[in-house]
Amino acid sequence: MTVLSKTVPFVDLTIQHQPLQTAIEKAMETVVKRGDFVLGQALREFEREFAQACGVNYGVGVASGTDAIALGLQACGINEGDEVIVPANTFIATVIGVIKSGATPILVDCDPETALIDLNAAAKAITPQTKAIVPVHLYGQMVSPSQLLDFAQAYNLIIFEDAAQAHLAQREGYTAGSIGKAAAFSFYPSKNLGAFGNGGMLITSDEEVAQNVRTLRNYGAPSKYYHTQIGSNSRLDTLQAAILQVKLPHLSQWNQLRNQAAKKYDQGLQLLADKGIIPIQNVSDRGHVYHLYVIRVHDTCTLNREKLQDYLLERGIQTGIHYPIPCHLQPGYKELGYQLGDFPHAENLCNQILSLPMYPGISSEHTDWVIEQLSLRIS
């Protein structure tokens, strides 16, 4: 058995939490003393601050990114019988959110170089029932805002962004969440801005949409005990909001550190391109916030992905696959009517992609070790 020379975790949250420990504990203590654990002051403040950071007017905290999609689409007027275009290569939560809104997800293929939704493929999927498109800013990189806006205008569609992996990502002068009618974010602990549990937010510049989500998240009640809609119980806890409020001012710097680490990977892996190791393409430069750093292990590589992943783990390097099965091939979603071969780019990527360790503060020693081990095995 190989002796581990170094241990490189896939994610290490302690690096960002330790310097903030005192501030986080004080923020939590303030909430405890105030006793406003549900829909409290820290939540209202964080909603406003996060929306402002994204360049929109309103934020509404909910229980998860999935609920942000579901309730957000409902608030935008999406109903049963409507169709919503979604990329096949996304986390299943995107599809679940559409289904929970009452709409039918219509899956489409992706660009094999960027892994982002293919708008040409989306255009071919348009029907009279198509009412919205959910572009997923996958891995921390935005879908082109200009292309999205042109697409939505051409087909009279609502743009509802899934920005769960793209906190403060930028492209073409836009910040993630500011392109369309509304957007959903997740604050799952490993996200670029993560809570100490589950959480999410809907952001928008449309006051009516924001108010609708406030109502829907709170039992369909715009005021206490007055229920105008069939809503749900989906609220971002005040304690979680207080923690996120402490972390938010550091997010831009953390994103920069992720981008810098990605550039180190890019430079170190250049010589492996002709050997079948190719990073997912960055077309956003510094606007990419690298929630994940993903490479493709091509068929031309001397080692298949599974063996490469095992090899790296033997040397203390943790990796991930995001995601190993595309949405249309998930067993629980057979009723959508798709089958193997429908989305070849998404299917091919699922067999190739490998996520390398990535988090703000990952050391040069660790990134160098990952590059060195990849180079030694592949060369």
Rank of each mutant, 00 (worst) to 15 (best):
F10D: 01
D342K: 15
S379R: 14
A123T: 07
L216F: 09
N259Q: 06
V8T: 03
S284Y: 07
D111T: 09
P357Y: 12
E80N: 15
Q74I: 12
A27V: 10
D150N: 09
E335M: 08
Q16K: 07
E80V: 13
H17I: 10
Q129L: 08
V32P: 02
H17S: 14
L202W: 05
N198Q: 08
L107N: 09
T175K: 14
I15Y: 12
L107S: 06
N351L: 08
S186L: 01
A125F: 15
Q153S: 09
N79R: 15
T22H: 13
N218Y: 04
E347Q: 03
R286C: 04
N57F: 10
S364W: 01
R217V: 02
L236V: 05
Y174F: 12
N212C: 06
H328Y: 01
I69L: 13
T228E: 13
S186F: 00
V297H: 12
G220C: 09
E372Y: 01
S205L: 10
Q352F: 02
K307R: 12
Q240G: 01
I158D: 02
V136A: 14
I126R: 13
M28T: 01
L269V: 08
Q129K: 15
V297M: 08
L13Y: 13
T367M: 00
Q16F: 10
L376C: 11
I159T: 06
G173C: 02
A70F: 04
A169W: 00
H345Q: 15
L354S: 06
E49C: 08
T30N: 10
A93E: 04
V38E: 06
S252T: 10
Q256R: 14
A182Y: 04
L73Q: 05
A195F: 10
L216S: 07
A221T: 12
E29W: 14
E29P: 05
L4M: 07
R258I: 14
P357V: 11
I321E: 11
F37V: 05
T66C: 09
F50K: 03
Q74Y: 12
T302D: 06
K275M: 08
A164D: 07
A115R: 05
A132I: 03
H322P: 08
G220M: 10
Q170I: 03
F343V: 01
S101L: 06
D266L: 13
Y174R: 13
F151E: 12
I280H: 03
G177C: 11
I277L: 09
E208D: 04
Q18P: 07
S144D: 14
S223C: 09
